[in-house]
């Protein structure tokens, strides 16, 4: 395996893995608070179209990223309202969000078709920095990838080493007890869900502004669903999400290296999904043995006064 190939795998792992990572980190926080949000695909799609629209109209890609993230947060409010205040079934609410988000993304994106962004984010272009082995190329190219990496560490720290993290986790494990301790369960869940939407929106905007800076529909292409799988895969731990997303990106990328060597393309294409299945099963086995698992109150609406 030569350096070029290794570089490619790592580069592609980070490039393809970053939108997955961002969405997964958001979903981890939402699920840690007990809210299952399957609507990631819809939130990403909405973030992608808003982000592109803003970046195109204002010429400022950073503004596009910001507003794309906020768009994701906004649309996640729908799911939050239905799941937390109306206490409806979170699976269906999330699915409805996907359908709605994709529909809006399609209609709103029409005027931008084929348009490309004049200014996009290409990072600090300095060929010498790019010489840093392994991570050099991606960090130079893509500040958001760097952000993803940094956020994983920060979010892990917050979740496990700070008071806020404890509050978040308690709301997801035992909301009744948290409530008794004076924590506003509803507020925490709302905030967690909105944060999930923010990250998903950012992931979507990243796709339409940086990954491929010209508009066509359907840019999310199923990544939202993979993020849901990765949330479980990573055992709801931001650091695990980091290498899980990159790992998934690497598997997806290496199938192209293995092409032409006799294995049918489609069998190779199954690889990422089979891997995910296998890892999820292993994760569940680990859960059973070590008792680390999904937040106990995941997807269970909290109603004060009812157990």
């Amino acid at each position: 395996m030569n350096v070029q190939i290794l570089n490619f795998i790592i580069y592609q792992a980070m490039k393809s893995g970053t939108p997955l990572l961002l969405a997964t980190l958001g979903e981890i926080y939402a699920e840690r608070a007990g809210i299952l949000n399957l609507g990631i695909e819809g939130m990403m799609a909405f973030g992608a179209v808003v982000g592109f629209g803003v970046a195109y109209t204002t010429g400022n890609p950073w503004l596009g990223l910001l507003l794309g993230a906020l768009a994701g947060a906004l649309i996640s409010l729908i799911h939050a309202f239905f799941s937390i205040s109306l206490r409806v079934n979170q699976v269906v609410s999330g699915l409805a969000l996907v359908i709605l988000g994709l529909g809006i993304h399609s209609v709103m994106g029409k005027p931008y078709v084929g348009q490309k962004l004049s200014n996009t984010i290409t990072g600090i272009i300095s060929p010498s920095l790019a010489q840093i082995p392994v991570v050099g190329s991606i960090i130079v190219q893509d500040p958001i990838a760097f952000l993803g990496l940094a956020l994983s560490v920060v979010l892990w720290y917050v979740l496990f080493k700070t008071k806020y993290g404890i509050i978040l986790r308690s709301v997801g494990e035992n909301p009744a007890a948290a409530d008794a301790l004076g924590i506003n369960v509803y507020k925490v869940r709302y905030l967690a869900t909105i944060f999930g939407g923010l990250m998903a929106g950012l992931a979507g905007a990243y796709l339409s502004i940086i990954f491929r800076p010209s508009w066509t529909e359907g840019i999310t292409a199923g990544m939202g669903w993979i993020a849901i799988a990765l949330t479980i895969f990573s055992l709801w731990n931001p650091i695990h999400a980091l290498w899980a997303s990159y790992f998934f990106g690497a598997i997806s990328a290496s199938q192209y290296l293995l092409q032409g060597k006799g294995i049918p393309v489609d069998i190779l294409g199954m690889m990422p999904y089979i891997f995910t299945l296998v890892i999820v099963v292993i994760a569940s086995l680990a859960q059973l043995k070590k008792r680390i698992g999904a937040p106990e109150a995941l997807a269970v609406p909290y109603v004060r006064g009812q157990s």
Partner: peptide, 13 residues
């Protein structure tokens, strides 16, 4: 786009 980018980068690598 994601697959196209992966495949393109694989070829370049």
């Amino acid at each position: 786009p994601e697959k196209a980018q992966s495949a393109a980068n694989a070829l370049l690598a």
